[in-house]
């Protein structure tokens, strides 16, 4: 142990000594714990309920996120490669040279297939043999395609993506905020959306469904919801950023949705949101006065 380590050990020893004097469990700690655990069966059932709701919400979220993209894909021209069907009755092993012998599967015993009927052959000819060769470039495809099976956590970025799509679908333009309350908010990225507060758009309900798809053990998870305000925050350990979403019903039958993210541990208050909300309310008041 070098001198610095020795010094750290001594300093921390002092802290642990103080803790040992103060931090003692109550006499009835175990009794209370066992009482609480006795009532856990009911809570477990409730938990399953939340899991089921979460699963439904995740499906809805995926449908909403992927739905419009599928439509978009349908409208794009797709190159279809039609090849004439061949009447092959026997598949013989290929004589493969050393350079071409890439897969062992090629060198298998002859396989006898049933002779296809005329109707089968015609059907095969009229249908495209190969799948579409070219796909439109989709920046979000990795969410569905490349997610490692073991990683079941949803990325907070998905929430932003969902909001972006919801806004685009409803013709709401995002407004990037340059809010810098002071230097402690450096590195903070904010975007504001103003949605109509209508049953058709139903922003609160959609946000709620999206939020409950996230596991409450996600680092930094904090979720609060009322008729007036939606508040959700969590950390993304992959990008080391804290994400924040606040939606609030504001004057004029609108919902202000504010999203922000900043490096984990950096100051991130809701001051920017409040400033933006005040600005929005002032605009309404001015218009009312003009009328």
């Amino acid at each position: 142990m070098n001198k610095e380590e020795q010094l750290f050990h001594e300093a921390l020893q002092r802290q642990n000594d103080r803790l040992a004097r103060r931090m003692r469990l109550s006499e009835d700690f175990n009794d209370r714990l066992m009482q609480r655990i006795g009532g856990q069966k009911l809570r477990r059932r409730r938990r399953w309920y939340y899991v089921a709701v979460g699963a439904v919400a995740a499906s809805v979220l995926l449908m909403v996120v992927l739905g419009p993209r599928t439509e978009q894909r349908k409208s794009l021209p797709v190159a279809v490669n039609v090849q004439p069907a061949r009447k092959v009755v026997k598949v013989r092993p290929l004589a493969v040279g050393p350079k071409e012998g890439r897969e062992e599967a090629v060198q298998q015993a002859p396989v006898t297939r049933e002779r296809p009927s005329r109707r089968d052959v015609e059907a095969e000819i009229t249908q495209p043999v190969n799948p579409p060769v070219q796909h439109p470039i989709d920046a979000n495809l990795h969410y569905t395609a490349d997610v490692a099976p073991a990683d079941t956590s949803l990325s907070p970025v998905l929430m932003d993506e969902f909001i972006r799509k919801l806004a685009a679908y409803n013709g709401v333009k995002p407004e990037a905020s340059d809010c810098t309350v002071d230097s402690t908010h450096a590195g903070m990225v904010c975007t504001a959306y103003v949605f109509p507060d209508t049953k058709e758009v139903d922003v609160f309900e959609r946000l709620l469904l999206a939020a409950i798809a996230y596991d409450d053990t996600t680092p930094g998870y904090l979720f609060n919801y009322s008729h007036q305000q939606f508040f959700f925050t969590m950390n993304d350990l992959h990008t080391q950023r804290t994400h924040l979403w606040i939606a609030e019903r504001v004057a004029g039958g609108r919902i202000l949705l504010y999203t922000a993210n900043s490096p984990i541990g950096a100051e991130m208050s809701s001051e920017c949101f409040q400033m933006y909300r005040n600005k929005l309310n002032n605009t309404i008041n001015l218009k009312m006065t003009e009328l």
Partner: peptide, 30 residues
Amino acid sequence: HQLMLFVGRIVSQREDAEDVVQNAFVAAYE
């Protein structure tokens, strides 16, 4: 006891630390 000392490194109030330890045990059970 060991968990109480562990939590005490983060949560300074004894009563709060005890609540945290209790919640932790309940979560562990779940």
